[in-house]
């Protein structure tokens, strides 16, 4: 149980440094530390599939982010801060935090999931009949690839669309005038 608190406090500190540092490359590296801490925490929360996926996504995301921040001539953040606006924003965010803490009183205690007391929930059905109906020993794999396969299809569609969008935005030869398209007449 203490390992959760250690990892969570590590994640919170890493994200605080990432938010407050003035060097963009340091901020990106701190977000990478936060992501690997989250994947370690997923491993301790008995979710090995998500831990593996999080590590792969974290490495790819770090490569993308470093591509954006490295070799830019101004990676340092400068300029004066607007003091009053920052104070107001921090106050509003703090009030949101205090109001949100009341919600957690309505949830069951950490470590006692909701589905445990109800035998008719979908989770219990998946665990009970997952192997017999789909043939997958890993219940998570049987959920994403069989019970909710349309969800995974939608995920693949979203990923494909976003990659197409990124390719279109980053394409060099986007502007091509009429003159360059016209064939040169031999004369």
């Amino acid at each position: 149980m203490t390992i959760f608190y250690i990892l969570l406090i590590f994640i919170v500190i890493a994200s605080l440094i990432a938010v407050e540092t003035t060097d963009l490359l340091s901020a990106v590296i701190c977000v990478g530390a936060m992501g690997f801490g989250v994947s370690l925490l997923f491993l301790f929360l008995r979710a090995p599939d998500i831990a593996i996926t999080q590590i792969v996504v974290e490495i790819l995301g770090l490569i993308i982010l470093i591509r954006a921040t490295i070799s830019r001539d101004l990676t340092f953040i400068s300029g004066d801060k607007e003091f009053f606006a920052t104070i107001v924003s921090v106050a509003i965010v703090f009030v949101i935090f205090l109001a949100g803490l009341r919600v957690f009183e309505t949830l069951p205690e950490f470590g006692t999931p909701v589905f445990a007391e109800r035998p008719d929930t979908a989770s219990q059905t998946y665990i009970r009949e997952g192997l017999a109906k789909t043939g997958a020993a890993n219940v998570v794999a049987s959920v994403i690839l069989d019970y909710r396969a349309y969800d995974t299809l939608g995920e693949a569609t979203v990923l494909f669309t976003s990659i197409i969008g990124a390719t279109v935005i980053l394409r060099r030869s986007a502007k091509r005038t009429i003159d360059t398209l016209r064939p040169v007449s031999p004369s």
Partner: peptide, 26 residues
């Protein structure tokens, strides 16, 4: 056993976050 349903849905959300990250950074 722990609950498999949030794990399956979070698996989808993590991969989608990678796609949105690529779009935002581009």
């Amino acid at each position: 056993a722990v609950d498999p349903l949030p794990q399956a849905l979070v698996l989808t959300a993590i991969v989608i976050s990678l796609g949105s990250l690529a779009l935002m950074i581009s």
